[in-house]
Amino acid sequence: MRVLALILIGLVSLGQAQEVLLDPRVFEIGRQLRCPTCIAETVADSAEGISGEMRLIIQEQLVAGKSEGEILAFFQERYGDWVLLDPPRRGIYLLVWASPVVVGLLAVVLLMIYIRRGQQQAAAPLDVSSDELERVRAALRQEG
Protein backbone atom coordinates (compact mmCIF):
# COMPACT_ATOMS: atom_id res chain seq x y z
CA MET A 1 0.00 0.00 0.00
CA ARG A 2 2.82 2.38 0.98
CA VAL A 3 4.69 1.53 -2.22
CA LEU A 4 1.58 2.25 -4.26
CA ALA A 5 1.18 5.62 -2.55
CA LEU A 6 4.82 6.47 -3.25
CA ILE A 7 4.40 5.52 -6.91
CA LEU A 8 1.29 7.70 -7.16
CA ILE A 9 3.08 10.66 -5.53
CA GLY A 10 6.00 10.12 -7.91
CA LEU A 11 3.71 10.13 -10.95
CA VAL A 12 1.90 13.28 -9.80
CA SER A 13 5.24 15.03 -9.16
CA LEU A 14 6.43 13.99 -12.61
CA GLY A 15 3.33 15.51 -14.19
CA GLN A 16 3.83 18.76 -12.27
CA ALA A 17 7.54 18.78 -13.06
CA GLN A 18 6.74 18.96 -16.77
CA GLU A 19 5.10 22.36 -16.23
CA VAL A 20 7.81 23.53 -13.82
CA LEU A 21 10.55 22.70 -16.31
CA LEU A 22 9.05 24.87 -19.03
CA ASP A 23 11.03 27.97 -19.94
CA PRO A 24 9.35 31.17 -18.61
CA ARG A 25 9.40 32.45 -22.20
CA VAL A 26 6.92 29.67 -23.06
CA PHE A 27 4.34 31.39 -20.86
CA GLU A 28 5.24 34.84 -22.22
CA ILE A 29 4.53 33.58 -25.75
CA GLY A 30 1.56 31.49 -24.57
CA ARG A 31 -0.05 34.63 -23.15
CA GLN A 32 -0.16 36.04 -26.69
CA LEU A 33 -2.02 33.02 -28.04
CA ARG A 34 -5.67 32.13 -27.68
CA CYS A 35 -6.52 28.59 -26.54
CA PRO A 36 -8.33 27.07 -29.56
CA THR A 37 -10.82 25.05 -27.54
CA CYS A 38 -11.49 27.41 -24.63
CA ILE A 39 -13.50 30.56 -24.05
CA ALA A 40 -11.44 33.64 -23.16
CA GLU A 41 -8.34 31.74 -22.04
CA THR A 42 -4.78 31.98 -23.24
CA VAL A 43 -2.52 29.06 -24.06
CA ALA A 44 -0.44 30.01 -21.01
CA ASP A 45 -3.39 29.81 -18.60
CA SER A 46 -5.50 27.00 -20.02
CA ALA A 47 -5.57 23.51 -18.54
CA GLU A 48 -6.88 22.02 -21.81
CA GLY A 49 -4.79 19.22 -23.32
CA ILE A 50 -4.31 21.08 -26.57
CA SER A 51 -2.95 24.13 -24.75
CA GLY A 52 -0.50 21.89 -22.87
CA GLU A 53 0.62 20.51 -26.21
CA MET A 54 0.98 24.01 -27.64
CA ARG A 55 3.17 24.96 -24.66
CA LEU A 56 5.39 21.95 -25.40
CA ILE A 57 5.60 22.96 -29.06
CA ILE A 58 6.64 26.49 -28.00
CA GLN A 59 9.30 25.00 -25.72
CA GLU A 60 10.61 22.75 -28.52
CA GLN A 61 10.78 25.65 -30.93
CA LEU A 62 12.59 27.85 -28.42
CA VAL A 63 15.14 25.08 -27.87
CA ALA A 64 15.50 24.84 -31.65
CA GLY A 65 16.44 28.54 -31.69
CA LYS A 66 13.21 29.94 -33.13
CA SER A 67 12.36 33.55 -32.32
CA GLU A 68 9.13 34.68 -30.67
CA GLY A 69 7.90 36.04 -34.01
CA GLU A 70 8.61 32.75 -35.78
CA ILE A 71 6.74 30.78 -33.11
CA LEU A 72 3.72 33.08 -33.26
CA ALA A 73 3.80 32.80 -37.06
CA PHE A 74 3.80 28.98 -36.75
CA PHE A 75 0.49 29.05 -34.88
CA GLN A 76 -0.91 31.87 -37.01
CA GLU A 77 -0.28 29.78 -40.12
CA ARG A 78 -2.35 26.95 -38.67
CA TYR A 79 -5.12 28.81 -36.84
CA GLY A 80 -5.21 32.11 -38.70
CA ASP A 81 -5.18 35.59 -37.15
CA TRP A 82 -7.83 34.41 -34.70
CA VAL A 83 -5.20 32.74 -32.53
CA LEU A 84 -3.32 36.00 -31.89
CA LEU A 85 -4.63 37.97 -28.93
CA ASP A 86 -3.09 41.13 -30.37
CA PRO A 87 -4.55 41.54 -33.86
CA PRO A 88 -1.89 42.08 -36.56
CA ARG A 89 -1.15 45.70 -37.52
CA ARG A 90 -2.38 45.43 -41.11
CA GLY A 91 -5.53 45.52 -43.23
CA ILE A 92 -8.85 45.84 -41.48
CA TYR A 93 -7.17 45.22 -38.10
CA LEU A 94 -5.58 48.67 -38.36
CA LEU A 95 -9.03 49.98 -37.49
CA VAL A 96 -8.76 48.29 -34.08
CA TRP A 97 -5.35 49.85 -33.42
CA ALA A 98 -6.29 53.25 -34.82
CA SER A 99 -9.70 53.62 -33.16
CA PRO A 100 -8.41 54.61 -29.66
CA VAL A 101 -6.23 57.31 -31.26
CA VAL A 102 -9.09 58.52 -33.47
CA VAL A 103 -11.54 58.60 -30.54
CA GLY A 104 -8.92 60.38 -28.37
CA LEU A 105 -8.28 63.01 -31.04
CA LEU A 106 -12.00 63.48 -31.53
CA ALA A 107 -12.43 64.03 -27.79
CA VAL A 108 -9.61 66.64 -27.78
CA VAL A 109 -11.16 68.47 -30.75
CA LEU A 110 -14.61 68.48 -29.10
CA LEU A 111 -13.11 69.77 -25.84
CA MET A 112 -11.27 72.54 -27.68
CA ILE A 113 -14.47 73.57 -29.51
CA TYR A 114 -16.36 73.60 -26.22
CA ILE A 115 -13.71 75.70 -24.44
CA ARG A 116 -13.38 78.15 -27.34
CA ARG A 117 -17.14 78.66 -27.48
CA GLY A 118 -17.20 79.39 -23.76
CA GLN A 119 -14.40 81.96 -24.13
CA GLN A 120 -16.13 83.64 -27.09
CA GLN A 121 -19.39 83.89 -25.17
CA ALA A 122 -17.59 85.41 -22.15
CA ALA A 123 -15.74 87.95 -24.32
CA ALA A 124 -18.77 89.01 -26.39
CA PRO A 125 -20.34 92.40 -25.41
CA LEU A 126 -23.75 92.13 -23.78
CA ASP A 127 -26.64 93.11 -25.98
CA VAL A 128 -28.59 95.23 -23.48
CA SER A 129 -30.81 98.18 -24.37
CA SER A 130 -30.33 101.60 -22.73
CA ASP A 131 -33.78 101.32 -21.06
CA GLU A 132 -32.83 98.06 -19.39
CA LEU A 133 -29.50 99.53 -18.26
CA GLU A 134 -31.27 102.51 -16.78
CA ARG A 135 -33.71 100.20 -14.93
CA VAL A 136 -30.84 98.24 -13.43
CA ARG A 137 -29.02 101.43 -12.40
CA ALA A 138 -32.21 102.73 -10.75
CA ALA A 139 -32.62 99.45 -8.86
CA LEU A 140 -29.01 99.60 -7.66
CA ARG A 141 -29.46 103.21 -6.51
CA GLN A 142 -32.55 102.25 -4.49
CA GLU A 143 -30.64 99.38 -2.80
CA GLY A 144 -27.61 101.58 -2.16
Binding site: P36, G49, I50, E53, M54, I57, R78, Y79, G80
Partner: peptide, 13 residues
Protein backbone atom coordinates in the same frame (compact mmCIF):
# COMPACT_ATOMS: atom_id res chain seq x y z
CA UNK B 1 -2.76 11.02 -28.58
CA UNK B 2 -0.46 14.04 -28.32
CA UNK B 3 -2.85 16.37 -30.23
CA UNK B 4 0.00 17.32 -32.60
CA UNK B 5 -2.02 16.49 -35.69
CA UNK B 6 -4.84 18.62 -34.32
CA UNK B 7 -2.43 21.56 -33.94
CA UNK B 8 -1.02 20.98 -37.44
CA UNK B 9 -4.54 21.11 -38.86
CA UNK B 10 -5.45 24.17 -36.79
CA UNK B 11 -8.24 22.26 -35.08
CA UNK B 12 -10.67 24.35 -33.04
CA UNK B 13 -12.75 21.54 -31.59
Amino acid sequence: LDNRLGVDYGLFG
